[in-house]
Design a binder for these strands. Structure first.
Lengths: 236, 236
DNA sequence: ATCAAATTCAAACGAGTGTTTGAATCATAT
DNA sequence: ATATGATTCAAACACTCGTTTGAATTTGAT
């Protein structure tokens, strides 16, 4: 129980950072493949080539390990999202921002993480896609805290960008966009089984390059769609 | 090990159907709240008020129980989807069907299940939304088998309905639509935490009545969006 | 009433879980 | 070289997991 309370190594990188990183990398991969409950500490430490007790020593518990796996990526992602939105708002100088720019800043920034292996690459992208529907209470709470500020800023930007669309409608469509995106990245192989595509597999392979423009046009098409007409239920 | 091999009670309803149904209902709710690995047999049998061994006796294993939880709903759902598509194709008499009708037949039929408690209601809807991103291998395989025929028929219908859209594009957009839908139904409360809405909660409550038209316009907006222009990467 | 099958039950099984312990090893600064 | 703290390690802890067992009970047909 020596120093497990220390949140992060203070400044310089000790050799034990190795162990931490190896554990985080192994956990990221295994969580993606097997889920949180389907991944045991022994699987993680085995894949990382470290002792079983290392996780509890460095992170405290499995729960805290899960949080750290996300935090090391999400902190960067959401700061980047805020930075870009700041930039856009500065350029716009008070005027509304084009919806396509807002959507790209939020979802494009996420998708583009897949190209950078040092940011977790496709593995982390799949993991986060799956985790959005995670039932576990503490994960939902953690995500809520990690996302609250960003989502709120983007919501406000969309309200301003689409003044003719009711706010409730925008929130719902934001919700839908999140779903389409999560699914697209989580299920690159999950649903390939289901759909079997019926198109040349070569065309499915190069998916990630073309995924972003494809997703983008879909999201924007949905975001800018005509407003729904609520039909009153027949009689009642 | 008396008769555990019997797939289903032959014809008439015995009193033990009670036990089966109680288990399935309890499992459906608990899986929705806690996930598959987060729900133990003891939780299920406890909630159902039956003996611990009852699950293994009636279903063989936890894995088979999970499959049965889905099968009793999905069989109806996908038959209904096929039936409606048959109807639409008969009416169309060889001509393409309007995309909105196809989309409503597939996704609307799912959403409308929520209104019928005897079909599982909102609980099953949330469960299926979450399960689409499930990592577990046997669940993916099971879903693939259960969905293959339906998805293929609907894909063909969409190809015909949108002759100007490349097939690969349609498959992707079908994928996106699945994601938006799954998310919308799975996360009715999951993301409410994240977004906190910023709109009158009363307006969020009546969500399910208006969810379908809202989702519908979003999906159709995305499905019919302009085609993406693939920009070649800068230099390379 | 009798018999055979279906179902329920309490108890236990072996395996796997996350976590803890205390000694051994390593690194670093004096 | 020595002392101090950080880290690693093998072993064990208490617990939960899904499943199995074999006897008790219930059910339904004769």
């Amino acid at each position: 129980m020596s120093q497990a309370a220390t949140p992060l190594p203070p400044v310089d990188a000790k050799s034990s950072d190795d162990t931490r990183e190896r554990i985080l990398d192994a956990a990221e991969h295994l969580f993606t493949e097997n889920g949180f409950e389907g991944t045991s500490m022994r699987m993680i430490t085995g894949a990382a080539g470290v002792n079983l007790a290392a996780v509890n020593y460095h992170f405290g518990s499995k729960e805290q390990l899960i949080q750290e796996v996300f935090r090391r990526r999400l902190t960067w992602l959401n700061q980047e999202r805020l930075r870009i939105l700041d930039e856009l708002e500065t350029e716009a100088a008070g005027k509304p921002i084009k919806p396509s720019l807002i959507v790209d800043a939020f979802f494009g920034t996420l998708i583009r993480m897949a190209e950078h292996e040092e940011l977790g690459g496709r593995t982390f992208l799949r993991l986060i896609g799956r985790t959005m529907t995670e039932p576990s209470g503490f994960i939902r709470a953690f995500f809520a805290e990690e996302y609250a500020a960003v989502v709120d800023r983007y919501k406000q930007a969309l309200f301003k960008a689409l003044p003719d669309v009711p706010k409730a409608e925008i929130v719902w469509r934001f919700h839908f966009m999140l779903g389409a995106t999560s699914y697209a990245i989580a299920g690159t192989d999950a649903l390939r089984i289901v759909t079997d595509w019926g198109i040349e597999p070569q065309e499915a392979e190069e998916g990630l390059d073309k995924l972003l423009p494809r997703l983008m046009t879909f999201l924007l098409g949905g975001l800018r769609a005509q407003l729904p007409q609520f039909v009153e239920p027949p009689s009642k």
